[in-house]
């Protein structure tokens, strides 16, 4: 069974998690519709490392994870506050 490292609960079965998609900067509130369309639909979809929002469903723990989309391995996890401090806007 595949295990995902939850920053709060340690390694837990993958079935307990939901992947919420890429963590990317959000446009400004008054940005043009094209910028919002780009934010909502366009995807880098890289073959390699990607930053994503993950949720550990039973405990409601939200975190950011860096994952390799080729090797199917987790590289590291970050708390949202640390992700923001490192420059990523939620």
């Amino acid at each position: 069974m595949k295990l995902i490292p939850c920053p709060l609960n340690g390694p837990r079965p993958v079935g307990e998690f939901a992947c919420l998609g890429p963590a990317k900067p959000m446009p400004a509130d008054d940005a043009a519709p094209e910028a919002w369309a780009d934010f909502a639909y366009a995807e880098d979809n890289p073959a390699g490392p990607i930053l994503e929002w993950w949720l550990h469903v039973p405990s409601g723990t939200m975190f950011v994870a860096e994952r390799d989309t080729v090797t199917d391995t987790m590289i590291r996890t970050l708390w949202p506050a640390d992700f923001r401090a490192a420059g990523g806007r939620p």
Binding site: M1, K2, V14, G15, F17, A18, C19, N45, A47, I50, E52, R67, T69, V70, T71, D72
Partner: peptide, 13 residues
């Protein structure tokens, strides 16, 4: 599958 991946592996889940 529940998340993006460039792999054609099979899983038990």
């Amino acid at each position: 599958d529940p998340y993006a991946l460039y792999s054609s592996r099979s899983t038990f889940e």
